[in-house]
Structures are given as structure tokens and as C-alpha cells.
Amino acid sequence: MREEKVKAMGIYAAIIGLIYLFISIMEIFGGIYNVPKDIFGGLVLLVIAATYLTGVKRALNGECKGLSFLIAGVFLSSVFGILYILILFANWLEYLIGNASFSFYLRPEIWLFFAILPLAYLIKKEIRW
């Protein structure tokens, strides 16, 4: 794999990682804008942020080992993205049976999941199973 590509992925991961970090802090403390307080949820985002950011330095050096962290990060982002999409669906069902009101609130985990898809695609193209 060409070094520039790894570097490009490193930059992408750095941005994504920082966004995760930022949102994680908002969730842990809560009340900033309309991000609801969710301590465990915030800690999870912190773990994901740490995973991406650990890999950044090595990826920027063009080392393949750095990619490992990006792969694991993509994996974690996907797990939580899909999880919260499913939960959104469950909330909608809850609304249908008349138990709760429903607000179409896209948790940050969901749109971050879509944001990492290009990275996932690049990785999938480069690495063999």
C-alpha cells in the first residue's frame, strides 16, 4: 500500500477522532446545546475517540500498524451507529403503540457512523482478510 494513502487515512481519522472526543465530552457533562447527558454513552465515545487517535500518529508516519487502530475504530463506530439506528426504530415502534412521544433525534453516533463510511471503504479496498 502506498504511504500517501495511509497518511490520508491518518488525517481523516484525526478529524473523526477529534469530533468523537468533542461529542464525548458534551455527552458526559450534558446540557450543552441539546445533547442529552449520558455518562456511559459519553465514555463509550471517549473509547472510540481514543482508538482513532492512538492510530493517527503512526498512520501519519505511513506505518501500516497505525491502520489497525483505524480498522478497530471503524468497527466500533459501526457497532454503535447501527445500534442507535435500531434503537431509533424501536422508539418509533414505541410511538406507534401509543406509549411515548417520538422525536426524530439523530444521535451523534448515527451521523458519525455515516461519516466514517468513506474510511471503511478505503480500508476494505486495501486490506485482505
Binding site: 481514543a50 492512538t54 500498524k65 489497525s68 487502530f69 468497527f75 486490506i127
Partner: peptide, 17 residues
């Protein structure tokens, strides 16, 4: 060469993470 599996293990078995 490093496979997908090696890479995942590198992180999932990471000392700190």
C-alpha cells in the same frame, strides 16, 4: 503479511485500549 485478523488483534488485545 499483516492480515485483517492480526490488525484487529493488535487493537483488541491492546495493553491500554
Amino acid at each position: 503479511e499483516w492480515t485483517f485478523s492480526d490488525m484487529l488483534d493488535h487493537v483488541f488485545l491492546h495493553r491500554v485500549l
